[in-house]
Design a binder for these strands. Structure first.
Lengths: 358, 358
DNA sequence: ATGAAAGCGCTAACAT
DNA sequence: ATGTTAGCGCTTTCAT
């Protein structure tokens, strides 16, 4: 009877104070020590079945939840990981995130998403924040402004596991996951060539990004293999990937203004693909007859664009899954890992009306 | 000289152990107590200018950063807020999130995003996690599966500030932000009527959601005002908002299979709008001549759809900003707030080819 | 003006 | 099998 009263009062106390149940409450109510309760809760073999049952049932009744903040402070890990991307309002990245989450969920990790909006400053602030929140690891795709990697290097040197995806860097030794950007661009370009286009342009993102270089190399290689000379004026860099107003329009205008006009475009990102389509439509350029186009995009709407857009699709979901699996391996490894892997996943070209002359 | 050595050694120690500098380190190195350092760091008036300067400079040199986990544990607040939405791969929600982040950033709050993927179970797990991570408040748009609100009610009763947006509930008294869904649907329907459509269907999401009811009411009201009888068979509910395979296709097929066929559609969400467009294209239905369509969508690509899609656009960015401002007011209020506000922001109808007969 | 000590919730080394 | 204690990093009350 006394015990019953005690339980009641603790419950009421906590309820009045609007605070969560703690191990201490349970210990007090049950006349045990906090360590016993703690051990019982985690099913330690040192605790008698009887006590375990008592504790477990009481904890259940009070809907006890361990305080992860306290756990993090103690263990210096949080079973959560941080994602650093430029934009979530982007099919590719939101699909990658879904891949990450699917693995995280099944392995009991929580995911904190942050956006840099292509700003170096924001990227630094976000990584600092995530690190200070004791994330166990980081999944990073670099912002377009990022050239100095010291914010990440420092954390990595301190032992924080990091896996890069999509926009990776050669400056850091760790696991990386990318789409086969070279092949994707190669296929797109080769396909345009075989469709009869001659002056194929490449509208792409900031020149220093890893993916930009890979895609440009694929584009060049396809040209070379078909004996088409490379023309620098056909490559247009949109520093902010079309995120900034007018960027794509200017690129398109430049291509249309060339003495020897471009007759097709390989667009290097989601935003650029749709941006080119929009710009061309506004200027009444007939696609594909006046201008063919193939775009890197993970949009699910390519079929209802006008015209339906030929696309190079990145395996975004798998990129996310692979990156998360790699990160968990790093986090949970008992021994320091010294050999790292760069996983390259295949892209998929789907031909639609935008690249096939009528 | 001795002090210099001490500094060196602490730095080295920490550096070797790959751990962050703590107040304790600073105290030890400077021969002060932790409380003095703590006070100096926050500029307490009780500390002499001399000591303050010493501490501040040393902290600066070692790049000291307070440990937010420890702060959270102590203060039971974290200067971070949680977002609970169904999907970030959705123009509307990613735009709302950008609005939230813009305010959060300027006010020094961090944002943790979580997705329910329309699953009640995930929504509950996510809210529990966020709460246990000591977020200072929650910004919530309910999942389609959610009918039981006890997970949120409990937290709210315990004093956790919550602001609802988009998919709100009448069961809880707090601030809410929505688009003027009634008006949006009314305008869309009235516009289709004035364009000469007669059998206007409504393809919408789960019937119990607040926004569904509001939009349905607007649709009905427009019909009534134009003396068109309401026909239940013209309203099709897609329980998962088109997230599940074939949902939208079935709705479209049902409308096409009616004895008195529908001749226009008001689609109630991003996914449903594009889903209907896709389904109609596949079935070779000519838009708008055989079927007109206006959709609730925040896509930026409506102009390059075929045909360009007439849209009801929600002020997503402002919804996010308003919700975040309201939440901060709740969080930072000294006194308990008892009177709550539901802010209704206007939608915008843009007429494009999909709803104007040729 | 500064220090000692307690406590936030939890775990684990060390008793017993 | 269970309890005591210390400690994670920080703030704050209470001494001095």
């Amino acid at each position: 009877m006394l015990r019953f009263c005690a339980r009641q009062s603790v419950f009421l106390e906590r309820h009045m104070k609007f605070e969560a149940i703690t191990i201490k409450d349970i210990a007090k109510a049950l006349g045990l020590s906090t360590s016993t309760v703690s051990r019982a809760l985690r099913g330690s073999y040192e605790i008698s079945e009887e006590t375990k049952k008592l504790v477990l049932e009481y904890a259940e009744k009070l809907n006890y939840r361990p305080n992860p903040i306290a756990l993090s402070l103690k263990e210096k890990r949080s079973r959560s990981i941080g994602i650093v991307v430029c934009e979530i309002a982007n099919n590719f990245f939101s699909q990658v995130i879904n891949g990450i989450e699917s693995i995280a969920y099944s392995k009991g990790y929580y995911v904190i998403i942050s956006q840099s909006h292509e700003s170096y400053e924001r990227e630094v602030a976000n990584t600092q924040y995530l690190a200070s929140r004791s994330v166990d690891g980081l999944l990073v795709s670099l912002s377009t402004e990022t050239t100095d990697l010291s914010h990440l290097k420092k954390l990595h040197d301190k032992g924080l596991p990091i896996v890069f995806f999509d926009r990776i860097t050669e400056e850091m030794q760790t696991h990386k996951v990318i789409a086969n950007n070279f092949n994707g661009a190669y296929q797109a370009t080769a396909h345009l060539i075989s469709s009869g286009f001659q002056r194929i342009a490449h509208v792409t993102i900031a020149s220093h990004l890893s993916i930009t270089k890979e895609r440009l190399a694929g584009y060049k290689s396809a040209l070379a293999d078909h004996n088409i000379p490379f023309d620098e004026s056909l490559v247009r860099y949109c520093k902010y990937g079309g995120l900034i107003y007018g960027e794509t329009e200017q690129a398109v205008d430049a291509l249309l203004g060339l003495e020897k006009k471009a007759d097709a475009i390989v667009a290097a990102s989601d935003k650029l693909s749709t941006g080119c389509l929009t710009a061309l439509a506004k200027r009444n350029i007939k696609i594909p007859d006046q201008m063919g186009i193939v775009g890197f995009t993970n949009s699910l709407l390519t079929d209802i664009f006008y015209p339906p857009l030929s696309s190079i699709r990145q395996p975004a979901l798998e990129i996310g899954q692979t990156a998360m699996e790699m990160l968990i391996r790093l986090i949970e490894s008992k021994h320091p890992i010294t050999s790292f892997e760069t996983r390259v996943l295949n892209t998929e070209l789907t031909v639609r009306a935008s690249s096939v002359k009528s």
